[in-house]
């Protein structure tokens, strides 16, 4: 694939960094799905959920290649994508089944739903053929990964699980975004041409994040009897630009840079 000519060197570097970041995150996602599939099977989760988790690992490995190829096309010279550890998340004091549910909801029902929306909008705005093809393939899989989360939540709620999800929602949401997402946009750094290559402007990403929570995640949780009011309050604080809105509920951050 030849390098796009409609971007200058700085633009290509920014896009290369974005796709390299995505390659690394997909590598970690593959690792996480590998572990989750084993845990779901051990906890006797629904067979369809276990099967989807196993397939998701393969999907993510394929995404690593897709993202790494695009990163290289835009000039990334980082080499092979190292495997990232994917440690367990969730309340330490919870039982193993509840902790697993927390992670599946956070990773699949929340994060992958957000990523699905982001890929949907990215596809709408992408102009580069290679990027459009990549985004489309990733979108297809992210939808399945998000469904995995909602499927497991449905099954676990029917069994009486998930009592602690409502209380943990602010921390869960805080963990899905970087500190700078809601910060003022530096217009000097904004380049609308990047959307054609898969990187949406930050104000669009903020809108996608908020609208996905409001129209998908919160109603989805409520449909399963999980009170989302604490999550709605967290989003309102974050969007209002309240200083420390994210940090105050999240504690120390470990997020990477895009």
């Amino acid at each position: 694939m030849s390098a796009p000519r409609d971007l200058d060197e700085r633009g290509r570097g920014l896009v290369a960094g974005v796709w390299a970041f995505r390659a690394r995150s997909e590598r970690e996602a593959a690792s996480r799905f590998e572990r989750l599939a084993a845990q779901l099977e051990a906890e006797d989760a629904a067979a369809v959920v276990v099967a989807m988790a196993k397939r998701a690992e393969d999907d993510e490995v394929r995404h690593v290649e897709i993202c790494a190829e695009l990163a290289a096309r835009y000039g990334h010279r980082g080499g092979a994508v190292a495997s990232e550890p994917a440690g367990e998340i969730g309340p330490r004091s919870a039982g193993s089944r509840e902790r697993l549910l927390y992670e599946v909801v956070a990773f699949c029902a929340v994060t992958e739903s957000i990523n699905s929306a982001l890929m949907m909008v990215s596809h709408e705005r992408a102009t580069d053929p290679a990027v459009r093809s990549a985004v489309r393939e990733i979108l297809r899989d992210e939808v399945t990964h998000a469904r995995l989360g909602w499927a497991h939540l449905a099954a676990e709620r029917a069994r009486g699980g998930g009592a602690g999800l409502a209380a943990g929602l602010p921390a869960m949401l805080s963990g899905t975004v970087r500190d700078d997402l809601f910060a003022p946009v530096d217009e000097a750094l904004a380049d609308p041409r990047l959307a054609g290559h898969g990187e949406l402007p930050r104000e669009v990403r903020v809108e996608v994040f908020a609208r996905t929570l409001e129209s998908v995640v919160f109603p989805g949780l409520e449909a399963h009897g999980v009170d989302a009011s604490a999550g709605r309050a967290w989003l309102a604080r974050a969007r209002s630009g309240a200083s420390g809105a994210i940090e105050t509920v999240g504690g120390p951050r470990t997020s990477g840079r895009r």
Partner: peptide, 28 residues
């Protein structure tokens, strides 16, 4: 597939310790 019911613990007192972990995986 229906397995045994397992309500598990409901405490969420230390959930915030994991904040930021998934930011690595979210593309926003």
């Amino acid at each position: 597939d229906v397995g045994p019911a397992d309500v598990g613990a409901d405490a969420q007192d230390d959930a915030s310790a994991d904040a930021g972990v998934l930011a690595w995986l979210s593309w926003v």
